[in-house]
Design a protein around this nucleic acid. Structure first.
Length: 133
DNA sequence: GGTCACTAGCGCCCCCTGCTGGT
DNA sequence: ACCAGCAGGGGGCGCTAGTGACC
């Protein structure tokens, strides 16, 4: 849904696109917070610690997701076809392909097609003997 | 105009399981 | 029967972008 405040925010942040440059690599970001998270990933600094298992993360979002996976067991994404539910929408999309049979990742060396980009990569090892990339 | 919090999205790695073909 | 190779399904995390609220 369109929101005026959102548009204003985009317009005002557009002017300074990616001017926050990492001093450890060539990457640049729109905001200082994004840069800060990125630098923490470089340094291994993980300030967001789980209160229940002491696992630590770079961002609060990662911690939030971890808590759903490990502690709250909250699975907001429900499959409409079976009983499966998931923590993440992307996992649900991947699951739904097991119902639809959709295989969007074709192998260019054989007739195989995968439902999952990662599985295609693994499959390629059977052709090349090694991981590509 | 900046920061923060949250969510969404893509990608990667890993594990377990079942099937299949060779021995 | 046993084993190895492979694919299917899924869990968990790394990282970045988008968005809305607040200062």
């Amino acid at each position: 849904m369109f929101k005026l405040s959102s548009l204003k925010h985009r317009l005002r942040t557009r002017s300074d696109e990616k001017r926050h440059v990492c001093h450890l690599c060539p990457k640049a970001f729109r905001t200082a917070t994004l840069l800060h998270n990125h630098v923490n990933a470089h340094t291994g600094n993980k300030p967001h610690k789980c209160s229940e298992c002491d696992t630590a993360f770079v961002t609060r979002g990662e911690l939030s997701r971890h808590r759903r996976y490990k502690h709250t067991l909250e699975r907001p994404f429900k499959c409409t076809i079976c009983e499966y539910s998931s923590v993440e929408a992307s996992k649900m999309r991947r699951h739904v392909r097991s119902h639809t049979g959709e295989r969007p990742y074709p192998c260019h060396l054989c007739s195989y097609a995968s439902k999952d980009a990662c599985k295609l990569k693994r499959h390629m090892v059977t052709h090349t003997g090694r991981i590509l990339g």
